[in-house]
C-alpha cells in the first residue's frame, strides 16, 4: 500500500452524552473505493460526515480525535472548513439538486469560487456532466429545471455538481439507495470510472454493491469499527465473527 489519503486516529463522536463513534482509527488509500457497511445506526454515515466536517452543522455534537487528509488534521483550529469541503465533496442519500436549471446546478460551485466568465463556466459544465456520464442525456436541456429529471439522473447531476468543484475525495452516503436497479447500475459504473482520479468513500446498505464497487471494506457495528480489509477478504474470509454474521445475512 503506497499512500493513504485519509488517516483517522482515535476519532470519537458524541451527540450530547450519547456515544455514536468510539475510537475509530482507519487509513483510507488514495484513488481507491472504500466502502463502509454495517447495520442501520452503526455510525457509518456519521463517520462519513466527520470527513468533511458536515457534523459541525449539528448542535450538541462533540468530536475528539484527529482526521488527517494529506497529512493535515482537518479538526485543527486553523482549518478553513470551506476549503476543506471543496477538497472533500459529498453526495447525499437523497439526491438534492437545487431548484435551478441543470446548468446553474453544475455552475454553482465554480460560481461561488468566483468564476464568472461564461466560456469557462460552459467548459466546466460540459466537462463535469461528461465525467458524470450524463452529458448525452441532458445536453439539450441544460436550461430546464434539474428537478424535471428522473431520480437517477438527478443523482448523477449531483455527482457532476460535486466534480465541478474539482475535489480530491468524494464521500457518498448511500448514493443509490433510493434508485431503481438500472440507475443504480449507472451510478456503480460511474464510481468505477471516477476512482481513476478520485478517492471515493461510499456508505452502503447493499452488500452486493459494496462487493461490486469497492476495493476496501470497513464494517461498523454499534459505533465501533469492527474490521477493515480488502473487499475480497472481508467477503470471503472475514477476520471477525460479527462481520461474517452480518455479510452472510444473519443479522442487520
Amino acid at each position: 500500500m503506497n499512500d493513504f489519503k485519509v488517516k483517522v486516529k482515535d476519532l470519537s463522536l458524541r451527540y450530547g452524552t450519547n456515544s455514536a463513534l468510539k475510537n475509530i482509527s482507519m487509513d483510507i488509500p488514495e484513488k481507491k473505493v472504500t466502502a463502509f457497511i454495517g447495520p442501520s445506526g452503526c455510525g457509518k454515515s456519521t463517520f462519513l460526515r466527520t470527513l468533511n466536517r458536515m457534523n459541525d452543522l449539528i448542535d450538541n455534537v462533540t468530536i475528539d480525535g484527529e482526521v488527517y487528509i494529506d497529512n493535515i488534521n482537518i479538526y485543527d483550529k486553523n482549518i478553513d472548513v470551506v476549503n476543506l469541503r471543496k477538497k472533500v465533496g459529498m453526495i447525499f442519500q437523497k439526491s438534492n439538486p437545487f431548484a435551478k436549471s441543470v446548468y446553474d446546478n453544475i455552475a454553482f460551485g465554480p460560481r461561488i469560487n468566483g468564476i464568472s466568465q461564461k466560456s469557462r463556466l460552459d467548459e466546466i459544465v460540459e466537462f463535469s456532466l461528461k465525467q458524470a456520464a450524463i452529458w448525452d442525456e441532458v445536453k439539450d436541456r441544460l436550461f430546464n429545471s434539474a428537478l424535471s429529471l428522473s431520480g437517477g439522473q438527478q443523482q448523477r447531476i449531483c455527482i457532476a455538481r460535486t466534480l465541478a468543484v474539482n475535489p480530491e475525495i468524494i464521500l457518498m452516503d448511500e448514493p443509490a439507495s433510493a434508485l431503481d436497479p438500472i440507475s443504480t447500475g449507472k451510478i456503480e459504473e460511474l464510481i468505477h470510472e471516477l476512482k481513476k482520479q478520485y478517492t471515493i468513500i461510499i456508505v452502503t446498505h447493499n452488500m452486493q454493491q459494496a462487493a461490486r464497487t469497492s476495493d476496501f471494506t470497513a464494517f461498523f457495528y454499534m459505533g465501533d469499527l469492527v474490521e477493515m480489509n480488502r473487499t475480497e477478504v472481508i467477503f470471503s474470509n472475514p477476520g471477525k465473527k460479527q462481520t461474517e454474521d452480518y455479510i452472510s445475512g444473519r443479522f442487520g
Binding site: 452543522l57 469541503r85 459529498m90 447525499f92 437523497k94 438534492n96 449531483c158 455538481r161 468543484v165
Partner: peptide, 14 residues
C-alpha cells in the same frame, strides 16, 4: 430543506 443547505455547504459555499 436541510438537504439544500447541506448540498451548498458541501460544495464549499460559505
Amino acid at each position: 430543506p436541510r438537504e439544500m443547505r447541506e448540498a451548498s455547504l458541501a460544495l464549499g459555499a460559505t
